[in-house]
Nucleic acid binder design. Sequence first.
DNA 1: ACGCGTTGTGAAAACGTTTTCATAGACAAC
DNA 2: GTTGTCTATGAAAACGTTTTCACAACGCGT
Lengths: 328, 328
Amino acid sequence: MTVGIRDVARAAGVSTATVSRALGKGPVSDALREQVEAAVRATGYRPNLSARRLRSQAAQTIGLIVADIRNPFFTAVSRAVEDAAYQAGMRLILCNTGEDAEREALYLRLMQEERVTGVVFAPTRRTAERLRPEDFPFPLVLIDRTGPPGGHDGVVLDNVAAGAALVDHLVEQGYSRIGGLFGSTSSTARERCDGYLAAMRRHGLAPQVRTVLPDAEPAQGEVARWLAEPGRPEALVVSNGLILMGAVRAARAAGVAWPGGIALAGFDNEPWTELVEPGLTVIEQPVAEIGAQAMGLLFDRLKTPGQPVRKVVLSGRLIARGSTGRRS
Amino acid sequence: MTVGIRDVARAAGVSTATVSRALGKGPVSDALREQVEAAVRATGYRPNLSARRLRSQAAQTIGLIVADIRNPFFTAVSRAVEDAAYQAGMRLILCNTGEDAEREALYLRLMQEERVTGVVFAPTRRTAERLRPEDFPFPLVLIDRTGPPGGHDGVVLDNVAAGAALVDHLVEQGYSRIGGLFGSTSSTARERCDGYLAAMRRHGLAPQVRTVLPDAEPAQGEVARWLAEPGRPEALVVSNGLILMGAVRAARAAGVAWPGGIALAGFDNEPWTELVEPGLTVIEQPVAEIGAQAMGLLFDRLKTPGQPVRKVVLSGRLIARGSTGRRS
DNA sequence: ACGCGTTGTGAAAACGTTTTCATAGACAAC
DNA sequence: GTTGTCTATGAAAACGTTTTCACAACGCGT
């Protein structure tokens, strides 16, 4: 039925071993190599990667496990990861967990069964805490979210500093009743909250924190409720792009303009944050570099398994726009 | 080193065949099945999927090949495809081509070598034209873009109708000098252009068409140039979300307000199109359904290989917003 | 008591490669 | 001329499963 390496061997008048070597990097005379290549063209042979993987024990595959590819942060990171992977001759298996610990476990098990070369993973806080390196036969690089210190390689934003930077900026612009709305599932959101709290304390201001599932709809609901309350904040710091979108929606729906009605500052410099008047103040994450660094860490560990665990901490960049204009 | 099925068999005191059957669906007595399950737990056995695939000739893998996962249309579709795939117990291999025909060919070859169960593919026009079913040993479902009639199953938008609908809407709102800016690489863009042209003709208006690489930067540049010309249009129809973003950017940069300065209408109801004042008029595509239908077609063809080629044509929905407000 | 299908099991073949091992030949050194 | 070190090659083992095949044990109708 399907043409295999033995068909090629027969057509070229050589052994299967020689075909394998000619196609790979083994030592073969130029004459035979050409014969083999001709035979490959003649037969239309395509190697069977499952067989190759089984025999050579090298999957040449990396797994990418994120909460939701529709989150533009993960979209951008995944693109960088994919580029690096294919550049290294590896394929990418994509998994969306929807912030669900059970699916995380399921996919991690799947990765073991695939015998993948490595995994890039953005875990929920719950999973990150019980992630033990010795349970995984492959390098596991954490992105965006981080686990207990010393566990796995990872690349994250300096979330505490970023959270504080937003507060500092708002204070500088004349705001003092600053609320914080953070995602409930990730260590990242918690760190950003920590930064927020530290900065508020430093400025002698009273923090108001709420948490929410990190998606647009829950965030919109929570902000709508918040805006309707009597002592509502003058400014809001939120912990990611989806929540920011929910907040914008809620403010629009409530007819609250900004920065007049409520100042808004968040994370992720998505294209639309510049476009929605008068522009949203955000911390820009170096998304492409996060993905590239993650793959870098992964390849390094493959090359030098014994090396100490490394965490790359990247800095965000504050982009001030109209949504945090000076308080009048 | 790594624990295999024979280790489990030894631990359970049975043959490897029995282990395989106990884990799969073969007939095994309850007693032995329990013994096997215990042995699996005890040994921490994880099946090797490469070996399983090699032997059973069922890859349980579907490939997804798109231009760029960062295009929100593809992001949303891919999420739907992934959901359907994992629900059916299959994994997803993701590939970005960047609208490059060479990479498309590369990835299609990769899919053959992976012996995938099926592929969902959004080809460039160039590739779509030379896509012959007999070259592929697996079902290939085209999304968004379409090939020559009768070639492959596919699910697309009714692009001609959608392109015309935007023109009709603009005419109704009082515009007559309506330009069209379309992507240069996809059949989709061409069809939307056809719809635009037909509608313009029907209304007795003179069309002005330009094409551009379907990404935000090229589009922004083209629109900026266009706006600077003397006989510039009063309204612009563009063929996808990225181009729309470029157009908005260019209008902003040129200080041209809308709908006053230039009316804007495009495709893809991304969240930000509602948020950027006064809202952008777009054709909404049923992204989730496109992905789901594609997988449906794929599974149908696996079940009934001989059935005639099917093309599912879905309708877009016009969402009128402020960007095409009545011409004053 | 006999044949006969059914069911559960194990031995061994098969899947399509890569890799190990053995060997034949070429060439250099003594 | 013998020995030794290469290099290119082929035969066969190996990778870890599933599947085929053979067979024993069992219940059933005659």
